[in-house]
């Protein structure tokens, strides 16, 4: 198990994939620099809005799902495709153990990579910014002062939740279909970007919504007015005091249980190669 764990970590940090990840993560940092360059007019509210809009829309709604899709689809799928899974499932480990070890290792790598990206984005957006002066000129709508470093901690808190939730969903997709990337992309666009932005009750079935709930608890409920949800719906979609942590953990447990059952029941061999 330990060998498989380290092997998976090394695989996750392999050259080509890491290049793609670096490019993906460079995008939000470039945006942060752009925003710094073209400073939003006004005071702390506008700067706060720019920071959180970019973090929520770009980092948590686009880059994070894409990263999880890349790694989740490769967790078992790429081994099946390359037929190397045969070496892992013909050892004395149970298939479910193989899956869980690989999932844990991949999730840890993703948390680390995405954590670095969030930190880099934060540094690009905040370092050199006179937050104190901005706060003196006027506070946030709730009357509180903006504390970017404390917000960063909030994002760090939500990060592992987002990683395991997205990774679990995309792992399940990769076990259910051989066209996992197409279906996962459709899922990201239709469910996590479009549906989670629509002011409808079905929004609660998205991971993004649950993450926002957690962030609203970890950081501030002020974040909710960035989502542009009508006030009438706000209580339904984001009830006060309700975090998305428990629902997300439940979802991860349910999805991973399904994954373990699937991986144990299915042969996971590329059919053509074993027909002889």
């Amino acid at each position: 198990m330990v060998a498989l764990f380290w092997f998976t970590i090394r695989q996750c940090l392999r050259g080509r994939r890491l290049w793609l990840v670096a490019l993906l993560l460079a995008g939000p940092c470039s945006l942060a620099l752009l925003l710094r360059n073209f400073e939003p007019p006004g005071g702390v509210v506008e700067t706060w809005e720019a920071y959180h809009s970019a973090m929520l829309s770009l980092m948590f709604m686009a880059v994070l799902p894409l990263l999880c899709m890349l790694y989740g689809s490769a967790l078992i799928g790429s081994e099946v495709e390359a037929r190397t899974l045969v070496y892992l499932v013909t050892r004395r480990m149970r298939r479910a153990t193989v899956l869980l070890v690989r999932f844990t290792a991949t999730a840890l790598v993703l948390v680390a990579l995405f954590g670095v990206a969030v930190l880099a984005f934060h540094l690009c957006a905040v370092v050199g910014l006179d937050v104190k002066a901005l706060n003196t000129a006027g506070g946030l709508s709730s009357g509180q002062a903006w504390q970017p470093w404390s917000d960063l901690l909030g994002y760090f808190g939500a990060l592992p939740l987002g990683v395991v939730a997205f990774l679990a969903v995309f792992t399940l997709v990769s076990l259910l279909t051989s066209r996992s990337l197409t279906i996962s992309t459709m899922y990201i666009v239709i469910v996590e970007i479009v549906l989670s932005s629509l002011p409808v009750g079905a929004q609660v079935y998205t991971i993004t919504n649950q993450l926002r709930r957690s962030l609203a608890t970890f950081i501030s409920r002020d974040l909710l007015w960035l989502v542009e949800v009508p006030v009438t719906l706000q209580e339904e979609l984001y009830p006060v005091g309700a975090t998305g942590t428990i629902p997300l953990v439940m979802v991860v447990l349910a999805v991973m249980t399904s994954c373990c059952v699937l991986v144990s029941r299915r042969e996971l061999a590329p059919a053509k190669s074993v027909r002889e």
Binding site: V86, T90, E267, S273, R275, E276
Partner: peptide, 12 residues
């Protein structure tokens, strides 16, 4: 042949 081996290895 490979089917038999896959079955013997618990792959299938």
């Amino acid at each position: 042949k490979s089917t038999l081996m896959g079955l013997a290895m618990g792959q299938l």
